[in-house]
Design a protein around this nucleic acid. Sequence first.
DNA 1: AACGGCATAGACAACGTTGTCGTATCGTGG
DNA 2: CCACGATACGACAACGTTGTCTATGCCGTT
Lengths: 339, 339
Amino acid sequence: MSDITIVDIAKQAGVSIKTVSRVINREEGVGPATRARVEDLIEKLGYRPNVSARSLSSRRSYLIGVVFMRVGAYHYVGEVQVGAMRACRRAGYHMVIEQVDDPGQARGPGLEQALKAGRFDGLVLTPPVCDDPEILAIIEAQGLSYVRVAPDRDFGRSPYVFMDDQQAAHDMTARLWDLGHRRIGFIDGPADHGSARRRREGYMTAMAERGARVRPEWIAPGDFMPLSGLEAGDQLLGLPEPPTAIFAANDSMAMGVLSAASKRGLSVPGDLSVVGFDDGPLAESSWPGLTTVHQPIAEMAEAATEMLIEGFGDPRFRSRTAARQLDYHIVERGSSTSR
Amino acid sequence: MSDITIVDIAKQAGVSIKTVSRVINREEGVGPATRARVEDLIEKLGYRPNVSARSLSSRRSYLIGVVFMRVGAYHYVGEVQVGAMRACRRAGYHMVIEQVDDPGQARGPGLEQALKAGRFDGLVLTPPVCDDPEILAIIEAQGLSYVRVAPDRDFGRSPYVFMDDQQAAHDMTARLWDLGHRRIGFIDGPADHGSARRRREGYMTAMAERGARVRPEWIAPGDFMPLSGLEAGDQLLGLPEPPTAIFAANDSMAMGVLSAASKRGLSVPGDLSVVGFDDGPLAESSWPGLTTVHQPIAEMAEAATEMLIEGFGDPRFRSRTAARQLDYHIVERGSSTSR
DNA sequence: AACGGCATAGACAACGTTGTCGTATCGTGG
DNA sequence: CCACGATACGACAACGTTGTCTATGCCGTT
C-alpha cells in the first residue's frame, strides 16, 4: 500500500503540506527551486495523492462514468471504453462503467444510486442511453455534466460528438456506382433508429443524384440482426432482376446477406457485391472480408470524454451546445468489386 | 447534488452521527426502534453516504478494478464486465475498469499509477492479464487482493474461478460421435494457449475412449482467428477421406470452417457438421447457427468478484487458494446433425 | 443493596487532502 | 528610506465519514 502521504513529502522537503499540494496541482505561488525539490521528492518516493482525500476536500472525484446499455454488439461498448479510457488516462481520471440493463432499472438500485453517492465529475452517455429521456432527467436532476456520443435527438440539450452517417452512406453508394453497379439494393435498419434513417437517406440521395430510379423493391426491411439480413438478402436476390450489389445498413445484416448468397450458390464478390456499415469485428472475420464504413467509435468516445473534462469548472457547461464531428472512412475488403 | 449528509440525518433523527453510521453499515448496537427511525429518514431524504469520506476514513474504497487486455474478442471482456457488475451492484461496490494494452504499459503511467493512488479494494484479473508475471508482481507489491478468472498456471498463487475446458471438449466430441460421426476433425488453437491445449486433450481422450484412432492429419493447426479456421477447414476438407464433422477450438475458427465449406459448395450441416467453442456472438449470428460450448464467462466473473468481496477483511486472503468451478453447457444450433 | 455485564449510544479524534486567509520577505517607485 | 504591492509560503479549518473509547441505563445475580 502506498503509505506515504503529503505530510511525508512536506517534512522531507522542509516545506508545508500546502506547498506540496500546490506543486501537485500545478498552482502558482511556488518558487522554482522549491517546486523542483518537491517534484524530485515526489518522484523519488513514488508518492501518489490519495484520491479519496482529494475528492473529499475538493469536491471533485476524478471519476468519470461511462453509461451504456448492453444491446447487441459488445463491439460498440468496447470501442467506447477504449476511447474514453485514453482520455481519462491522459487527464488523470478514472473510469467507472455503469450499465443500464433496461430503462426501468435506471431508477432502481442501479444508476440513480450510483449517481447519488456523490461520485462522478461527469458522465459520457452512449446510444441508446443518450436518447433516453428518463435517464437524462435523472442525470440532470443530480446536476451532473454529461456529453453524449452519437445522440439521435435533443441536440441542443448537451454537448455531443457525432459523425455524418448520411454522407457516409452516400459515399458508399457512390462507390458502388463507380464500380459499375446500377441495381443497388439496400437493407434498412429498425424504423425508429436515427442512424438507420440517415443511412437510407444517404443511399437515396446518392442514387437520385446519379439519375437512378430506386425501385421500391430494392429496399428491403431489416432490424440490424443477421437473420433479418439473410431474409432481406434472400428477398432481394429472388427478384426477377436482382441487384448486383447490396448495401446493408449494418455489418450484421451484411453477414446475413453473405449467407443468403452462399445459400443460392452465388459467389461474393464475383456474382454479388456486399457492403456493410460499422466496421465491427464481423467485417474482418467474415469471408470474404466485408467492405464497410468505419465508424470512429473509440475516437468519438475519446473526444466526448475530452470535452467533458475540459468543461469541468465551467458552470454553464451543460448549456454550451458544443458539438464535435469526426470523420468516417470506407474500408475496402474483399466483398465488393467492379461489375 | 446530494447535499444532505450524515449530520442532517442524525439531527433529524435526534441521534448522534455515529448511530447513523452504525445503521448504514449494519453494525449492531442500535435498538430496533432507533434503527427503524433512522432508516426511514434515510429513505425519505434520499441520503447516500459520500463515498470519498467513507473510504478516507475506513481505508476502503468500495471500488473494484477489473483489469483486462484488449485482445481479440470484445465479447469476452464484455461478458466479464456484465458479471462483475452484477456482483458489485449487489455489494454496493463500484467497478473501475483498467485496460492494459501491452505488458510493457503496466509499469507506465497506466496500471501502476492507478493502483498506487490508493484506490481499489481488490482486483479481478482476466486472461491473459491474469497470467502475466510482471503484472502479478506489481499488484502483489501493492498488497492488493485479487482473484483470477480462468488462469492458466500458478494456481496456488491466488483464489480463482474456472471451468473444465477439457471435459467440455470431451463432451462435445462424444456428442458428435453419438450423432454417428466417426471421422471428426479438430482445429487447434495457439500452441501456448492453455485452454486450447485442454480442449485438444478433451477431444483426444473422447476419441481414444471410443477406440477411434485419430489420424494425425485430422488435427489442423489454427490460431483462434477466423482466417486460420478457413485454411484449416480447407485443408481438412481436401483430404482424400475428409471428416464428416469438424470441431474447432473456438467459434471464430468455426466460422472460418463454415466459409471453407461454402467455398467448396458443401452444405452445413447436410454435408458437414461444424461445432465450435465459446458461444460468443458469432455463434448466434452465423448461418446456420453454430453448435458450440457455452462458456459461463459472466458467471465466472461474477463468482470471482463475489469471492473478492467476501474475502475483504481476511488478511490471509491471498494465500487462501480457494477455487470455484462453474459449469459449461453445450448449445445446440443448426450447424451439426446426425450422419 | 450492591455489583457485574450487556445493550445502546455518544464524544472526539482520526483519515489525507484542499480552501481560505494571514504573514513574512523582497523588490520597487516616490 | 519608507510605503507598498507582489511573491512565496504556512497555519488552520474544513470536507463527511468511521474507529476507538467512554458513558449511561437496565437487567439479573448474589
